[in-house]
C-alpha cells in the first residue's frame, strides 16, 4: 500500500503502475472501473465489498470521499494493487474546492475503453445520471435501503430521475423472489386477480416487487406491513386458490400452489457482495427495471392524487 498526500490523478496513475510492477505483473486484465462515492465511515466496508465482487469482475476501484468544501483544495490517496487481490484500488479523500470537481480527479484514472460503474453505497444524488461523477458511468448503482435520510422516499426519488443505466440494489435484492414467483407461475393457467406483498414498514424492495407484479400480472397490489425481516410473504390470488410464498426467517421459504404439495425453498437474504456481483454481470440498461420504475412512479402519482 502506498500513501500519497496532497496529490493529483497523474501521481495516482503512476502509483498504480509502480504497484503492479513491484508485484511482478504489469499486465492489466481488469474489465471495468468502479467508482465508489462514499462517506468516510463506511468507505473501507464498501471497498472491501467491491473487492470481493471484483473476484468475478476484476476492476480498478476508485473510492471517492467528498469532504468539506472549505479550506484549500487537497487530494490524499492510498493505493493498493498487486498484492494478492484482483484488480487494484485507490481511496481518495477530496477536500476544498476540488470537491466541486471530483470528475476531474476520476476521469484520468478510468481504464481505457472498458465500462465504468458508479456506485453510491449510502447517500445518492437525486439525479445520478446528471451527477458529475454519475455522468462518467454507463451504469449507476444506488441503494435506496441504505439512504441515510428520508429512507421511505429514497426509492421514489430514484424512480423519478430514472435514466437508462440506473439501477438500485433494492431491485437486485428481489431477483430470487422474482425467479421463484416466475417458476411458480409456470404451471398456472389462470389469471391472477389480486396480489399482496408483506414486508417490514420501510422496504424499497417490497415496493419494487409489488410494482413488478402488478405491472406484469395486471392485477391490483396490496402492500401489507409485517415484522420482517425484509419481505415475508407474497400472495397471488387466483380463482382456484392462492399461490403463496412465505418466508418468516429470511432464510427458508415455503411455496404453496393450489393442487400441489407445499415445498420448502431456500430463499436467503443475500449480502452486499452477492448483490454487487449480480449487478456487475450485465452492464446494459435493465429494461424490466425501467418498466417497473415507470409503474411505481405512476401508481405513486395516482395514490397521491387520490389522497
Amino acid at each position: 500500500m502506498s500513501i500519497l498526500e496532497d496529490t493529483d490523478a497523474a501521481a495516482v496513475a503512476a502509483a498504480f503502475v509502480d504497484a503492479r510492477r513491484a508485484a511482478g505483473s504489469p499486465a492489466m486484465d481488469m474489465v471495468m472501473t468502479m467508482v465508489i462515492v462514499v462517506p468516510e465511515d463506511v468507505a473501507e466496508d464498501a471497498l472491501h465489498a467491491a473487492r470481493d465482487a471484483s473476484k468475478e469482475h476484476p476492476s480498478r476501484r476508485l473510492g471517492v470521499i467528498l469532504g468539506s468544501k472549505r479550506g484549500p483544495s487537497r487530494i490524499d490517496a492510498d493505493i493498493k494493487a498487486g498484492s494478492g487481490t484482483t484488480g487494484e484500488r485507490a481511496l481518495m479523500r477530496l477536500t476544498g474546492e476540488v470537491v466541486e470537481h471530483p470528475e476531474s480527479v476520476v476521469l484520468p484514472l478510468l481504464l481505457p475503453d472498458s465500462p465504468v460503474v458508479v456506485w453510491w453505497p449510502t447517500a445518492a444524488p437525486e439525479d445520478p445520471a446528471s451527477d458529475p461523477l454519475g455522468r462518467l458511468g454507463s451504469r449507476r448503482i444506488t441503494d435506496a435501503a441504505q439512504a441515510p435520510r428520508a429512507r421511505s422516499k429514497a426509492l421514489l426519488t430514484q424512480c423519478h430521475s430514472y435514466a437508462p443505466g440506473n439501477t438500485d440494489l433494492a431491485w437486485t435484492r428481489i431477483t430470487p423472489w422474482r425467479a421463484l414467483l416466475a417458476t411458480a407461475m409456470d404451471d398456472v393457467e389462470e389469471k391472477v386477480r389480486a396480489i399482496s406483498v408483506s414486508a417490514e414498514h420501510v422496504s424499497p424492495s417490497a415496493d419494487l416487487l409489488g410494482a413488478w407484479l402488478t405491472d406484469r400480472l395486471k392485477a391490483p397490489v396490496t402492500r401489507k406491513r409485517s415484522r420482517g425481516p425484509g419481505i415475508t410473504e407474497v400472495v397471488l390470488t387466483t380463482r382456484s386458490g392462492d399461490i403463496r410464498v412465505s418466508r418468516k426467517d429470511g432464510r427458508l421459504a415455503t411455496l404453496s400452489v393450489p393442487g400441489q404439495p407445499d415445498r420448502p425453498v431456500a430463499l436467503r437474504r443475500r449480502g452486499i457482495v452477492e448483490l454487487l456481483t449480480e449487478e456487475l454481470r450485465r452492464l446494459d440498461p435493465d429494461d424490466v427495471y425501467a418498466a417497473t420504475v415507470r409503474r411505481l412512479r405512476r401508481d405513486a402519482a395516482r395514490s397521491q392524487g387520490a389522497g
Binding site: R178, L213, R216, L217
Partner: peptide
C-alpha cells in the same frame, strides 16, 4: 403464457421446470 416471464428479463435465471 406466464406473464412473469420476459425474454428481456435477463436477471431471472433459467430454472428447470418441475
Amino acid at each position: 403464457r406466464n406473464p412473469l416471464r420476459d425474454p428481456n428479463d435477463r436477471r431471472l435465471p433459467a430454472v428447470a421446470g418441475p
